[in-house]
Write a protein that binds this DNA or RNA. Structure first.
Lengths: 205, 205
DNA sequence: CGTTTCGTCGTACCACCGTACGATAAAAAC
DNA sequence: GTTTTTATCGTACGGTGGTACGACGAAACG
């Protein structure tokens, strides 16, 4: 049984178990024993790959972010090459909303990490947690492209516009996750906002 | 010393101590002892007024929401009667962003409660936690007024527009709280977004 | 074949947390 | 003036969580 093992693979499995636990229980309250049970291994194995709890939490965050980024990339890739920047912006922002049970789970865990990072310096220091991080540059480029195509007034700052749109998606995600809005309502609100900001068929003004 | 005491007042004091603790430490990790120490009383006094931890957390949330609502009301009241709906919307949304250390602290604790409510059924059931709740109706009315004043295209749904703007404020608050944006940047992004959605001097189109 | 390393497990320790059980003074009630 | 209530405290108990220590097979290495 105990032949050579890929440590990164094992860590990924355990991090996945942690994320699975965090879908339904407060992140801070999840411990080694719970992760071990969820992964079907014993306590010490978890501790073997994540010697301290801080590293365990960190590993879960890394995995979560990888999964979310991959899902976003896959979803965007399977859309036939749509070169309209406004349409692409819409796709990206829509994908950020929780739209199915899996993405809702991921969002919930991500929110737990974001909240924890606000008070836990160890988490706040390491990788970006709540920020738009990866998608932000691409979105800024797309907004700039839309602006050049005359879909957006020339005097607005694309950086600010991009981050404002991202913020709207984030906030609406929060409302949807907490049950205040249905995911359909959130999507509608986002769509309408996009229609107001980036009007599809208007010359520059 | 032990004469008759106003229980609500005591509860408020203790809840305030809890919120003070939660500014810098994970909410879930705060216990009776820490709150007692922060309030300068002993363990059992906290337990006397909040017999169970669930009630303690609940009390903290109630107090936090009361403080935030009062701050918002006060800030809005001290603005000289500005009857322009767009300007009033701007004031409200700006006030939702963290703009000083106190509001940043309050936002952080509020975010911790919102995240906890996503997995803790006891918190999710009781009062609204993450939702725009109180301000939402007023904001919808203001958006409707702006629409009637020709500042917003007639075919948009004011409810969706209001919730989208609220979502933008919420998301930008998250970015500001997590250090991804400065509060100035968040305010600029929000302002620009408002300028795009509710154009100040345009006829109905 | 002996030895060392590696992955995995069982168990134990210490500290802390929520909760409960008195105890004690001061005020109120009678 | 006695008794009962009220606000407050000190301390204790059961449980749980992070961490540590040791053990034990299986492979790799010589």
């Amino acid at each position: 049984m105990p032949k050579r093992v890929d440590h990164d693979q094992r860590r990924r499995e355990l991090a996945e178990a942690l994320v699975r636990c965090a879908r339904t229980r407060p992140l801070h309250a999840i411990g080694y024993r719970e992760v071990a049970a969820e992964a079907g291994v014993s306590l010490n194995l978890v501790q073997y790959y994540f010697p301290t709890k801080e590293k365990l939490l960190h590993g879960g965050l890394v995995h979560l972010r990888a999964v979310m980024a991959r899902r976003l990339r896959d979803r965007l890739a399977e859309t036939t090459g749509d070169d309209d920047p406004v349409q692409r912006i819409r796709l990206i922002l829509r994908e950020l909303l929780p739209h199915d049970p899996v993405s809702a789970d991921l969002y919930r865990v991500h929110a737990a990490y974001a909240a924890l990072a606000l008070t836990d310096p160890a988490l706040a220091a390491e990788p970006h947690t709540a920020g738009p991080d990866q998608i932000y540059p691409e979105l800024t480029d797309l907004v700039t492209a839309a602006q050049k195509a005359g879909r957006l007034s020339a005097h607005v700052d694309p950086h600010l516009a991009a981050v404002a749109l991202l913020g709207a998606a984030t906030g609406l995600s929060a409302y949807a996750a907490s049950g205040y809005l249905t995911s359909e309502q959130a999507a509608q609100a986002l769509d309408q906002q996009l229609d107001l900001v980036l009007e599809p068929h208007r010359g520059s003004r």
